[in-house]
Amino acid sequence: MSVERAGALLDLGRHAEALEVLGAVPGAESSAYALGLRTRALLGLKRLGPARESAAAMRRIAPHGEWGYRLGAIVERSMGRPADALALADQAAALDPQEPFTHQVAVLCALDIGDLRSAGEHASAMLELAPDTALAHVTLARVQIASSQLVWAEASLRRALTIDSADDVAMALLAEVVAKERPEEARQLRVAALRADPQDVGHRRRVLSRGRAMALGGAAVTAGKLGLVGKFAALSVLSHAVRGQSGRLTLAVMTVIYLATFAVSRVRRRRHGRKLPPLVWEGTRADRRNADLLWLGVPAALVAVISAVVILVRAAAGVSPVGPVVWFVAALVVLAVCWRFRAGEVRDRALAEVLRDVWRAVVRTVSFNWQRRGARRRRRRGQR
């Protein structure tokens, strides 16, 4: 009875309570089904390490059951290990090719490493098994978007919305597909997706989008727009700082460009906001404030890191690091101000928790890119 109660709690999104209930179930560690529920609860709480162990234990108890492999693939994917995730997803699909969700997870894993052929095969299999589910058409649309088949993707997503008119994921994806040609429709779709799931952070951010460009902006966006020029300028500033030279001209140019980009983006965001329903615009207040703070926080973090490197280099060389120390302290003050004025859900999070999540995101990104590159290299060798 407690196991069924845990499943019901998971369906309601009450992961912590479900985990507590499962902890009180005698012999839960030897039940594949209970371990599956435990893995789901841990995933919901973003406790990926324990979730990985739980999924592995599930596979040991039930080596021929697909669920343990499917959940393992989801965990590995969440940890930024696309090659490991795809291997588990393929095993799940091989163990139970008649289960639509094994193919759905396999599609996502294949797309992560850019294997469009495999993703297409799994998407077609899922659609054949579950043609009357919106998720099957959304999954096929993801492959079509990745393959630049936007007309077909639009048709798939509209079919998904015919089946389930409240599917917020289908709305959000369709908005991205039609954004370039029909920005007003894209805006309406993003608002509808947000109304369907107001707690989704991605929907709140996307509703601030103009066409395909995010209206939030930030240092990363600016650097991306500048491309090689921005990277060269950043390296130039770092090189001057390490060698004790000023590099003031480069720094001044970068600052002017950055401030101009911020000003333009905020004007455009305000114009975009007038086209949104007033309550929706008001509901994004916290996201907008946090986005503005990122424009201060990201450069301050970069200055703090660069200053710390310069301080260490100069100290090792026996050179006075007074200037970099001043920059380092100033950057910390800016970061403290940004932290003080943060808004929304972020205010409820401890600094240690945020830093931990940032570190995990960095590790996950590095791991993801490394595994994806290796998987693509092996795939190319196999095609020769």
Rank of each mutant, 00 (worst) to 15 (best):
Q91E: 15
R384P: 11
V178W: 08
A331G: 14
P183V: 04
G202R: 11
L135G: 06
H15I: 07
L238S: 03
A34H: 00
G318Y: 04
V191F: 06
F101A: 11
V305I: 13
G247E: 03
R117V: 15
W295P: 00
G323I: 12
R206E: 14
D348R: 14
M126H: 11
R60F: 09
V201S: 11
R364I: 02
I311L: 09
A213G: 04
A92W: 03
Y33S: 07
T250Q: 02
A186Y: 01
G13Y: 03
V298G: 00
E353F: 02
P299S: 06
R187I: 07
R356N: 13
A219N: 05
V333I: 10
E128A: 15
F232I: 09
L293N: 06
L161N: 10
V253G: 12
A304G: 11
V151L: 11
L111K: 01
T365N: 01
G218R: 05
A155R: 09
E66V: 06
P82T: 03
R159M: 07
V329I: 14
V280F: 01
V326Y: 04
Y258C: 00
R70S: 08
L174H: 13
V326A: 10
R266C: 07
T284W: 02
E99P: 04
K231W: 12
R195S: 13
L161K: 09
E282W: 10
P50G: 09
I145R: 14
V143E: 07
R158E: 15
W339A: 11
L296C: 09
E4V: 14
V319P: 04
